[in-house]
Structure formats: C-alpha cells, structure tokens
C-alpha cells in the first residue's frame, strides 16, 4: 500500500492546518496587537513617536512585574486575586521602614534602606506563605483563599498608614522606580529582567516543566511522582514576591505610598495574562504570551488616549477586548482538546 503523492500532499496540508489551529492561542493575541498598532498609527500621528513607545512601556511595567508571577499561578490552573493588595501592602511596608518628612503623621520605624527592603521582601514572602499554606495544606480553593488574602493585604496596608500618605522610600527603590538610564526608565529594565527570568525558569528548568505538567493534568503529575502541593506552594510564593517587588517600585513610580493605590492592577495583571493567551485551565501559554498581553493592554489604553475617545467609552472597550480574549481562550482550549482526544 503506497500512498500517492497527492494524498501525502493532502495530509501535509491538513497537518499544517491542524498546527495553525493549535497555535490559535498564540496567534490571535499577536494579531490583535499588530491590528491595534496599525489602527492607532493611522488614527493618530502622535502615537508612533519614541516618546510614546517609552510611555507605553513605562505604563505596563508595574503590571508586567505582577503578571510575571501571576503567569506561574495561572499556568498551574490556579488564580491569585491577592496580587494587587500584596503589592500595596509591601509598598507601604517599605515606606513604613523609611524616614519620612516631619509633615507625614505616621508612627513609622526608620531603618537603613537595605534592611527596609529586606523586611519588605520578607513581608511579601510571609503573605505568600500564608496563601500557600491555606491552599496546599488546609485545602482552601485558591480563588477563595486569595480573596481572603486580598482583604488581609489591604488591612495591613491600612493599619500601617492609617489614611495618611508616605512619600519617601529607600534610595535604590526610588531610582529603580522613578529613575532612568539614558532614555530608558529603570522600571522598564526591571520589568524586562523579571519577565526574562520568569521565561527562563518556565522554559528551561525542571521546575518550570513541572509547573506546566501540574497545570496540564494535575492527577497525572501526582501519579508520576511529582510533589504537586510543593509546586503549588512555590508558584504562590513566586507570585507574592513578584507582587511585592512591583509594590515597592510602584510606590516609587507613583511618588507616594497610600491605601488603595494599586486597585486597578489586579484586573490589569489578570487581563494581561489571559489576553496573551495563557490558558485559564492551566498547562498552556507562558511569559511570551503574557508580554503580548501586556502590550495589547498598554497599546489599547495609550492609543485610546491619543484618539480622544470618550473616557467612559474607553472602559467599555477594554471590557469588550477582555471578553473577546476570554472567548478565544476557551475556544482555543476546546480546539486543542478535540484534536488530542480524537
């Protein structure tokens, strides 16, 4: 039985089509990004300037650091709703350990900068450890557990500043958050490094592989002798540390540490991960997707400002883009599943 050349050609075409379909999760967000860039370039001359590119990058940096950690969690098929609140708490914490002006009425504890940063990072680790304990040892679903941690993080921040605003942070944090080297803002460099590190860990390390496997089929991972609970604890810790780092730099970036200043970052970071095409069910996607997702959101937000659109309509448009991404996400999942169970 020898297949004719035509048949071979046909199967080759079919398999290419299958491959394309399986890559829908990666192609769709990238196509969206290109379309948005093209759209805004035509609509507004001020959109395609170097200044504006730097602007967009700066605007997505804090979200990017949070989203890097969140990608790990979502790849495992879990969610972390506490990221923005942990960021806020840790940002306030580092300010709390820094000498403030006499006009700031906070019972703070001034410490050397290095120690203040160390304690703040320890704080983010502690919050992450509590989340990890609740999810992996007690067995609380991550959605609920991190919802509780969202409240706890807000509470800690509120207790520390008591409605006041702190301005000073350790020097190095101030530089990384608000300074720049040449034309490039430091915070963009930090975000790039964090995302790159995340990509390296996920793609090239044994731990990264187990993250994908736990997300792909948790039961199978367990039956292969993977310590699933340890992996889940690790991703929740990574997420908390990334959020803490984003919190410290964010406070410097905004120029103040106060209650509720990170509120938008929860939805932004989840949107970035999901719009980029990482599966909400776990196991598919990665940092590359998250970067594309960040840029889609960044270009959209920034571009809508350039075309002078009604600011209320802007919110609606963002919501619709997110909905579209979710539809593609679920559809891509189903396509892939139907191919592999056929």
């Amino acid at each position: 039985m020898t297949p004719s050349n035509a048949a071979v050609e046909l199967t080759r075409k079919a398999s290419r089509l299958l491959w394309l379909r399986s890559q829908l999760r990666n192609i769709a967000p990238f196509a969206t990004l290109l379309a948005l860039i093209a759209l805004f370039s035509v609509a507004s001359p001020s959109f395609t300037t170097w200044d504006n590119v730097a602007n967009i990058l700066r605007q997505v940096s804090v979200t990017g650091i949070i989203a890097a950690g969140l990608t790990f969690v979502i790849l495992c098929g879990e969610i972390d709703l506490s990221v923005a609140s942990v960021a806020n708490a840790v940002g306030i914490l580092v300010a709390f350990f820094t000498m403030q002006d006499s006009s700031v009425n906070i019972a703070n504890m001034p410490l050397p900068g290095g120690l203040a940063i160390g304690l703040a990072i320890l704080g983010s680790l502690a919050l992450g450890a509590v989340t990890a304990f609740g999810v992996t040892v007690i067995g609380i679903p991550s959605f609920i557990m991190t919802l509780a941690m969202l409240q706890i993080g807000s509470g800690i921040g509120a207790m520390l500043v008591r409605g006041q605003i702190a301005y000073n942070v350790p020097g190095i944090i101030a530089t990384l958050g608000a300074g720049s080297i040449g034309p490039v803002p430091w915070i963009v460099v930090v975000a790039a490094i964090v995302l790159l590190l995340g990509h390296i860990v996920l793609t090239y390390t044994v731990f990264g592989r187990t993250v994908y496997m736990v997300g792909g089929n948790r039961e199978a991972a367990e039956y292969s002798g993977v310590n699933v609970r340890l992996v889940l604890a690790a991703v929740l810790l990574i997420s908390a540390v990334c959020a803490g780092l984003a919190g410290m730099l964010g406070v410097a970036h905004f120029g103040s540490a106060q209650q509720d200043e990170f509120d938008n970052y929860l939805l932004d970071s989840i949107s970035a991960v999901v719009v980029g095409g990482t599966s909400l069910f776990g196991g598919q996607g990665g940092i590359g997707n998250t970067i594309v997702g960040l840029l889609v959101l960044g270009v959209l937000n920034n571009g809508l400002d350039h075309v002078r659109i009604d600011s209320f309509l802007k919110i609606l448009i963002r919501g619709m883009i997110l909905l579209l991404a979710l539809v593609i996400n679920v559809y891509a999942q189903r396509l892939r599943a139907s191919q592999t169970t056929a």
């Binding site: 089929n217 367990e222 039956y223 002798g225 993977v226 310590n227 196991g283 599943a337 169970t341």
Partner: peptide, 24 residues
Amino acid sequence: NTAQARRAGIAFLPESRRSMLFAQ
C-alpha cells in the same frame, strides 16, 4: 505523598489512562 513513594523506588500505573498521561 507520591513524590516520596517515587523517590523510595515505588512506581505506579493507575487504572485510568486519563489520570496518568498528559494528552496535550
């Protein structure tokens, strides 16, 4: 946990293929 069993030298194949393989 299963990781301890694996390190000790125990291997296992569960009864349902779906729960031991990564289809994707």
